[in-house]
Structure formats: C-alpha cells, structure tokens
C-alpha cells in the first residue's frame, strides 16, 4: 500500500491508487484502434454502501426521495431503500451518484478508468483473454437479481480494488459517451448523421460479452434512471 493510498485512506473512504497505463479498450478509441492511455488515478476500493449513502442523504436533504427533482432522480430512486448495512447502494441515478462523489471531493470514474481497473484479476493486470475469467463474469450477468445483495468486500484484484465484478453494475462519468446504436446489430453500418463524427462506436472485442452487456446496460439508461442492480463508486485525481 503506497503513500498515496495511505493518504487517501485518511480522508475517510478507502481509495486505492492505480498507476498510469494503456488499455486496449472494447470501445474503439479511434479508427486507428490504438490503445488508450490512462493517467494515474485513485479508485474507491469498494462500491458505495447503503450505510454511506444513507449518511449522505441525511446530510443533504435535497437528495431525499420525494424531494429530489425528477430531472435528477426518477421513479426508481432508492426503491430498494437505505439502511446501515455494508451492502452496495442501488437505485441511485447518475446525478445522485455524482452528487455523492462531489461531497467527498471526488467524481465518478470514466469508462476507460473503470474498464482498466476491471480488466484485472487477483494476479494479472489484464485477464480479459482468459476464457475462464470471462465465463465466470458472464455467469453473474446471467443470474437474475433475486433477494438482497451481499455486503461489499469481495476478493481484491491485483490493484487492491474489490467487487468490480459479481456484485452490481456501476455508473461511469461518461455513460452517455457510449455512442452505440440502440440496435447493436447495426454497429458495422453507422448512421453518420445520427452521430456526427465517427458514427456509432464499433465494438472491438465482440468476444468479451460481459463488457458488451455492460455497455448495453449503461447505454439504455438516462441520467435520472436507476435500477436495482446498479450502484457506483467514486474516483479521485492523484496529485504528486
């Protein structure tokens, strides 16, 4: 555990520092398909819990259900309730997640930052080519969301981050940058007028179904929406 991580831990929530690196993202960065550069950043070790979000809502009344404007949080907001447990909070909209992160001097991670952290397993920074790893993750997505969620604190990956897989979907800052065609089968034939610029994103790695499903879920949502299996964690800049 580096000095940066230790300092971040003092701030309350536990953040883990991730080093700068490159990532062959599933979302093509550009038509030249070069890997994406990720600057060093810090990521919360676990998703935000129900207990933590409850404290936030108690301290920030405008974010209570019934008081928050519908443009920031719609009908499903906190439908699963809040309590003092360490289960991940769900039923939070993108705006609510942003507000929480801002309250602790942080922000939501970008898609690339999230994907970069999530590519790792316990021993490798990039386990995505391992069919066994992919099958395990796909297995979670295939099971329906029944019953209450378990508490956070699963096994850590090689960076020390936990629960990126198998617990909840997570918001990212640029969820509305996932410019995929609503009908994913047309991706190879982008409607150029619909998305000025490069057209709809072509997904590079169509074998990585877990990521495809994540992109599908995030691109199906609006910023005021929430679901029973969608939570979040925060990210911070790393200053040296």
């Amino acid at each position: 555990m580096g000095l940066t991580t230790a300092l971040l831990a003092l701030a309350g929530a536990s953040y883990v520092a991730l080093p700068a690196g490159t990532l062959d993202s599933v979302l093509a960065r550009d038509t030249d398909r070069k890997p994406t550069r990720i600057a060093a950043f810090a990521l919360r070790e676990t998703p935000v819990t129900r207990a933590e979000f409850k404290r936030f809502v108690d301290a920030h009344p405008p974010w209570q259900p019934g008081r928050v404007p519908t443009v920031f949080a719609g009908a499903g907001y906190l439908l699963q309730g809040l309590d003092d447990t360490a289960a991940p909070v769900t039923g939070v909209s993108w705006f609510a997640a942003q507000a929480y992160c801002e309250s602790e001097g942080a922000r939501l991670p970008t898609w690339y930052e999230w994907e970069y952290a999530a590519a790792a397993d316990a021993t490798r920074t990039d386990a995505r080519q391992d069919p066994a790893w992919r099958a395990r993750i796909l297995g979670w997505y295939a099971r329906p969301a029944n019953g209450p969620l378990p508490v956070v604190g699963g096994d850590a990956n090689v960076y020390g981050v936990r629960d990126l897989h198998g617990l909840v979907w997570e918001w990212v800052d640029d969820f509305n940058a996932l410019l995929v065609n609503a009908d994913s089968r047309s991706a190879a034939d982008p409607d150029r007028l619909k998305f000025c610029g490069a057209g709809a994103i072509d997904l590079q790695d169509r074998q990585n179904y877990a990521v495809l499903m994540r992109v599908a879920l995030l691109s199906s949502l609006g910023a005021a929406d929430s679901t029973g299996t969608l939570g979040f964690r925060c990210a911070r800049e790393v200053t040296r």
Binding site: N146, A182, D183, G228
Partner: peptide, 24 residues
C-alpha cells in the same frame, strides 16, 4: 420488469422498419 438485470428490446420479423423494432 424492474428486477431485470439486463436491458432488452424486440425485433419482430413481421415489422418493416429498422431492426424490426429493435432500434425503437
């Protein structure tokens, strides 16, 4: 249904239109 984990859509082969309705 709210308990679904996944987003879903529908393509009906009887529809004349983009994606058979999937895009919409």
């Amino acid at each position: 249904h709210p308990t679904s984990k996944m987003p879903h859509n529908i393509d009906l082969h009887g529809v004349t239109g983009p994606g058979g309705g999937a895009a919409s």
